[in-house]
């Protein structure tokens, strides 16, 4: 099964091994026809409707604005419905440095996103701390805080790279199963259990 999106041939993608691994996992687990078809339908909807959360801390956020503008026009793919409320967004584009003080806020935003939720680490700061890695007040990559689905390198990544990154996410959504089986949610659960939030009193 070749997973691709419209107007982009399968060979043009850079890292197909990852998707193939997911597909194999999917094949091994097997499923019945009705659930499988239903899954396909739902995944078609999910992968074509990724709404971002308006979340930006620094430079990358400005490129994200450019992404929405006429030249790169992410509306073509249906990503322009940027929601300001995390409850209504599907994925979070972590555009910019996450510093110590922002970490709790960032984690809370992630927790507030409604399932199924995804995270794209956009730019070198979000991936590893980037040029500020040695600083006393910068988180060294967001991978320790939330599970990340796609990494988009660059400082800041060009809008084209961001489009590519979100398209990769869309491919990933396509091969995930919504009903049971090879379920991302379980892996995510594992991650969250190993990174518990304490000290929340409400």
């Amino acid at each position: 099964m070749e997973v691709t999106t419209k107007s982009m041939p399968y060979e043009a993608w850079k890292d197909n091994e990852y998707i193939e691994k997911l597909v194999n996992e999917l094949k091994e687990s097997g499923t019945n026809v009705i659930v499988g078809q239903l899954d396909k339908l739902i995944n078609w909807g999910r992968s074509n409707s990724l709404w971002p959360l308006t979340f930006a801390t620094s430079c990358c956020g400005i490129e994200f604005v450019s992404l929405g503008a006429a030249r790169f026009d992410m509306a073509r793919f249906g990503w322009e419905v940027a929601r300001a409320s995390p409850r209504q967004a599907d994925f979070m584009m972590v555009a910019g440095t996450i510093v110590n003080r922002m970490v709790p806020v960032f984690r809370r935003l992630y927790d507030q996103l409604a399932e199924p939720k995804y995270v794209i680490a956009c730019g070198s700061c979000a991936i590893s701390g980037g040029p500020f890695r040695k600083s006393y007040h910068v988180a060294k990559g967001i991978e320790d805080i939330v599970p990340v689905d796609v990494f988009v390198p660059g400082c800041p990544p060009r809008p084209e790279a961001m489009i590519y990154g979100i398209m990769q996410l869309s491919r990933k959504v396509k091969v995930e199963k919504f009903f049971g089986g090879v379920n991302r949610q379980e892996k995510q659960q594992e991650f969250l259990e190993s990174h518990p939030v304490s000290g929340v009193n409400d």
């Binding site: 999106t5 909807g45 074509n48 409707s49 503008a69 073509r76 399932e115």
Partner: peptide
């Protein structure tokens, strides 16, 4: 001065259908 949805379905006509599918299965917090 943009194009707007044009990838999902012909002329992007199915874009809102896809959105509806997605909204239907989103978690109710």
């Amino acid at each position: 001065c943009r194009i707007g949805p044009n990838r999902v379905g012909p002329l992007g006509l199915l874009q809102s259908v896809a959105d509806m599918f997605k909204i239907l299965i989103k978690e109710l917090i």
